[in-house]
């Protein structure tokens, strides 16, 4: 048996196994590090930067940094909280997030993480980009206004469903989610609501049709307790107010 190795996270000892990332080890130890593009069922993507932690004084993404013995990791400091808040604010102004008009509100990971880091307002100047809504599929609708480019649907469709329905096209500010058909319409693909890709979106960008506002305000996933206690919408089953199919 290999000797147990550990690092410290905000002063607390966290054990890890060889090959584990800081995020995976923290999660296994029951310590929450905010994240959006990370989902334990998929290879880490390292794109949203919300999981930023100080590793021996250097800022790194917890979901892609391998844990190492003796590391000193900081997560809940004022400075890191502020950086995370800034990242969330940028995500909000870059898209169009009208939470009062969004079906996922209350059970949205983006919103819940923003609450967690104490974001009261978006602070920056809004881009108000013009992005389409695709309602061509009989079972699902995609509202590109709410996409944060976490590529979880891309990974799920490619790696689990074997369908490769989604992709991200363009670079930098031009980067956007596309559907892999000549028309660019979801209705022209073999996407199904039972696909893994339909269950992983952390926002209201991918929604199930013909169902909506089923859970009253006050009883939604993140209405009473923060995401650090409740867990991610994509990892919780539908019966618990999450997205995962039972």
């Amino acid at each position: 048996m290999s000797e147990e190795q550990s690092f410290t996270l905000d002063g607390r000892r966290v054990p890890f196994q060889a090959g584990q990332t800081i995020m995976a080890a923290a999660l296994a130890a029951g310590v929450y590090i905010p994240h959006l593009c990370f989902n334990r069922e998929f290879a880490p993507h390292g794109s949203c930067r919300v999981c930023l932690v100080g590793v021996n004084g250097r800022m790194q993404a917890a979901c892609t940094t391998p844990a190492a013995a003796g590391q000193t990791v900081e997560s809940e400091t004022g400075e890191i909280r502020e950086i995370r808040r800034g990242i969330l604010q940028m995500l909000f102004v870059e898209g169009n997030h009208v939470c009062p008009a969004c079906e996922k509100s209350g059970a949205c990971q983006l919103q819940a993480v923003a609450y967690y880091v104490g974001m009261l307002a978006p602070h920056y100047t809004h881009f108000y980009p013009r992005r389409p809504v695709d309602a061509s599929h009989p079972e699902a609708v995609i509202d590109f206004n709410r996409c944060i480019l976490c590529e979880l649907c891309v990974r799920a469709s490619r790696d689990v469903d074997g369908k490769n329905v989604f992709a991200v096209q363009g670079r930098g500010i031009e980067a956007h989610l596309v559907v892999n058909t000549p028309s660019g319409k979801l209705g022209a693909t073999d996407f199904s609501i039972h696909d893994k890709a339909a269950q992983v979106c952390p926002t209201g960008a991918i929604l199930t049709k013909h169902r909506g506002y089923e859970i009253p305000i006050g009883q939604r996933l993140y209405d009473r307790k923060p995401i650090s206690v409740v867990g991610d919408v994509a990892t919780l089953s539908e019966s618990k107010g999450g997205r995962r199919h039972d």
Binding site: V98, C99, L120, A121, H126, R130
Partner: peptide
Amino acid sequence: VAIGACALNGGVPAMRNQ
């Protein structure tokens, strides 16, 4: 003090920005 979604991010009226 800015109070409410519309004051903070334009809210529902800003949907016309599309």
